[in-house]
Amino acid sequence: MFDWLREHMIPCPFKVITGHDCPGCGMQRAIIELLDGNIWLSIQFYPALITLVIMFVTLALHLKFHWKHGALVLKIMFIFNAIIIAVFYILKTFNIFTL
């Protein structure tokens, strides 16, 4: 099933038009590798995936249970995720450093 998924991935419209990676390129590969159990490979493909998943789970729980400091925690997690995505996108686009 995972091999079938690896062969049938949705193409990125940004990459088709411009020829460059978009900030989310690598996420599908990372999701498939994470579902398959290869955590280090998924981090190599897309480092922000696990933190994004944690952030969305926290968002859902906060909207359900209305924690007192949930908004502050979500704000900090969002800024952290944005920094990870921006830094690794710049590194990936300019081929400075790859995990």
């Binding site: 900030p23 989310g24 968002l59 908004a71 979500l74 995720n81 944005a82």
Partner: peptide
């Protein structure tokens, strides 16, 4: 809050 956080997910997906 959900829309503000989903804006960065849409940046990644679409």
């Amino acid at each position: 809050l959900a829309l503000g956080i989903l804006s960065i997910a849409m940046l990644c997906c679409c």
